[in-house]
Design a protein around this nucleic acid. Sequence first.
DNA 1: TAGTGGTCTAGACCACACG
DNA 2: GTGTGGTCTAGACCACTAC
Lengths: 260, 260
Amino acid sequence: MWAGRDAMTSTVSGLAAVRFALDRTSPVPLYHQLAQQLEAAIEGGILTPGNHLGNEVDLSVRLGLSRPTVRQAIQSLVDKGLLVRRRGVGTQVVHSQVKRPLELSSLYDDLETAGQQPTTRVLHNETAPAAADVAAALGIPEGGEVTVLERLRFTHGHPVAFLCNYLPTGLLPLDTDRLQVTGLYRMLRSAGITLHSARQTIGARCATAQEAARLDEKEGAALLTMQRTAYDDTGRAVEYGTHIYRASRYAFDFQLLVRP
Amino acid sequence: MWAGRDAMTSTVSGLAAVRFALDRTSPVPLYHQLAQQLEAAIEGGILTPGNHLGNEVDLSVRLGLSRPTVRQAIQSLVDKGLLVRRRGVGTQVVHSQVKRPLELSSLYDDLETAGQQPTTRVLHNETAPAAADVAAALGIPEGGEVTVLERLRFTHGHPVAFLCNYLPTGLLPLDTDRLQVTGLYRMLRSAGITLHSARQTIGARCATAQEAARLDEKEGAALLTMQRTAYDDTGRAVEYGTHIYRASRYAFDFQLLVRP
DNA sequence: TAGTGGTCTAGACCACACG
DNA sequence: GTGTGGTCTAGACCACTAC
């Protein structure tokens, strides 16, 4: 029985071929090290779709880890959509190219990763009393002071979007020069504000004459609209924005994972 | 010290007031029972934003559970965005109204939960050879047989969307009569197909004369467009669709959680 | 220094799928 | 039946935060 198993391992493609290197002195948790190496093996094609991962108990013995630790590593990849577990069956690599789950995306980052070399022109950057909708979105009293930000975003010198954002005044320094060379979300991050969730609405409408002029479109052209309120990890609203995109030059593209 | 603690509990609003009822004979896991009751306490306002949950060890003693079990319950609520944990600080109820995370949403279900009484008219339901884009999306050979579905979705008797879907033929029975009274995703679910992920693109354009006529709009009206490919839990593509929505009557509205 | 969550262990029993 | 993942226990030590 045992001899048979050992003899078989040499013919098993997949997990048996993976070399794991766990460093107990590293500050990186063991389950995370294991998850990273499993993910690398999947990305690198060593573990191919449909490959069984073998049962958790054997794996934990082989790695010298406890089963809960191995489970935690596997679970994180299941959450990422790379693995599927079935009771009584086993753990398998998922069959397809699920790339990145939906992120709370920043237009600036999206454009940059798409190689679009985004640039920004700041049209307004000043404080003003909050209108009713802004106050409601940010959870502050109507008429309270907010910072109003209006920006035009360009790619290759052509306008793509008109961005209007409202933030609680004093939340972070909003230097106009810095806003011209980076994205708002990056500035939030580097100010120590971790975004946690957001509520957004995506719609469409035809461009008014003013909007058309601003975005270098014809009047009546299709525009994508987005309103978003973003919250930090304590649940405090940190940003409300109404954005307008040229539909001829931009579309929202994202991956969803079903939460079980 | 201990006396002081006990004396304080009576003045502590929040967790101390919550009565937990755990049933060890239930098939529902203990961590899930606990998570549900904590969630109910938050929804019901017994635990209010900012309330500390108290340390995990005390809670596990009080409940007669092990700490890992309590942690699992708390973690599930952290994943849902209801709680925040900070090392050295504690666990707190999040400060805002984060309601539902983004789901792989079905238009039919969305409309129904909004009380819009959706109805459907099936325009086409037949098999045809797959065009290049459809074949690529579904991962089948070009010219391979697919089922083509064209539907109009109404609310209160007015058209909202034109839905065109492609599915691998034979994946499930697609009875036209049933499609008229329910949604495609419900039929997939009841056929034992669990959706796992999807890739979607949302854009906008102006209505052509034909589209305008079909959706009871004027030519040139703004339309929202969505293309989506959905995958089941083995990573197999089970559905590809191109949808068109009247922007005057529909917008995408959803909540995002940042995945840490 | 004291208290918190973060990580990890070494077991155990159960429910479910498959042959 | 046999093997799988699902759940649960009762401890342990560490890293971080706040005072």
